[in-house]
């Protein structure tokens, strides 16, 4: 990744290179651009009135509200969890570290539908915790908490997987320098580590939020599809489609597509920042750490700075 900034490795496409470039651009247009255009065209197929009716419909607004609620819970949760997990994975050595990394990747490898079913088996009326929850009048599956939990599960890896490479690239030098200057753990986290990874963190949050808003499979299993109550936007699109309200379905889908586009733009902007901060880290880390050491009054040598 860091090598990509050496311009010597980049070449202008020639011959076969052009063919590959054109083919992939055409594929991209066919797979990404064309569906987007179709969504918009179909959304307005019955006129702007239908479009407005569809997106201001009571059930649509309720679905939008639920989707935003899910995002508002999932993203902050994973921000905190992601930083903690990435710190464990890159800064600590302990037994079961590999297991933690594997567990965090689990949602990537398990089909969302299966993960939804797992929650039904766990929290459902006939599940392990079902009878206990029922006795205490707590509803998890087929209610909002189930939707939130399922989304938390499928979005688990996004922030962590974004943070880990960046934190590995930055290394421990600056943190050790700060520690040698007497900074506490919290000070190091707030003043040294987080400022360096903030773009990666933000990028991870954007991806996590996009997935949380768009998740269908797992949510579909645990939601129960109660209109106006446990339907998120993607589920509402399916409901409208199933009711032959094609234009309305596409109108709501265009809301999701719009949020996807915002994500893409954010992603483009952030990716540059992330790359820049990684690149800076490899060259600047040693210099700044050394500088920090020079001005240090502490005599504790830092392993990173010595090497």
């Amino acid at each position: 990744m860091a090598d990509a900034r050496h311009d010597g490795l980049r070449e202008r496409p020639r011959g076969a290179g052009w063919a590959v470039a054109i083919t992939s651009l055409c594929l991209l247009a066919l797979l990404v651009l064309a569906p987007l255009v179709v969504v918009l065209v179909e959304a307005f197929a019955e006129g702007a009135g239908t479009f407005l009716d569809a997106i201001t419909d009571e059930d649509t607004v309720s679905a939008l509200g639920l989707t935003l609620l899910v995002v508002a819970i999932v993203v902050p949760f994973h921000t905190v969890f992601g930083v903690a997990a990435a710190w464990l994975l890159t800064r600590q050595d302990f037994r079961g570290k590999a297991l933690l990394g594997t567990l965090i990747d689990l949602p990537f490898t398990v089909s969302p539908v299966v993960s939804g079913l797992l929650f039904v088996l766990l929290f459902g009326a006939r599940g392990w915790l079902g009878p206990w929850l029922r006795d205490h009048d707590v509803r998890v599956v087929y209610a909002v908490p189930g939707v939130v939990i399922a989304t938390l599960f499928v979005t688990l890896p996004f922030v962590v997987r974004e943070l880990v490479p960046t934190m590995e690239a930055i290394g421990r030098d600056e943190e050790e320098a700060a520690a040698s200057l007497g900074a506490s753990g919290w000070q190091i986290l707030w003043r040294v580590t987080l400022p360096r990874v903030r773009w990666a963190l933000f990028y991870g949050c954007v991806l996590c939020g996009a997935r949380a808003a768009g998740e269908f499979g797992a949510v579909s299993v645990v939601s129960g599809h109660v209109r106006g109550e446990t339907s998120t936007l993607p589920l509402h699109v399916e409901i409208l489609w199933g009711e032959y309200h094609t234009a309305a379905a596409f109108a709501v889908a265009s809301m999701l597509a719009a949020s996807g586009l915002v994500t893409l733009v954010l992603r483009g902007l952030l990716e540059r920042r992330v790359r820049a901060s990684k690149a800076r880290s490899s060259s600047a880390a040693h210099a700044s750490a050394a500088l920090a050491l020079e001005t240090s009054i502490s005599s504790v040598p830092s392993k990173g700075a010595l090497s």
């Binding site: 508002a72 905190v80 909002v144």
Partner: peptide
């Protein structure tokens, strides 16, 4: 960060 955590508490509360 504080606002994020605050937001999450808020939303959990509203939930």
């Amino acid at each position: 960060f504080v606002s994020c955590v605050g937001l999450s508490c808020l939303s959990l509360g509203s939930l």
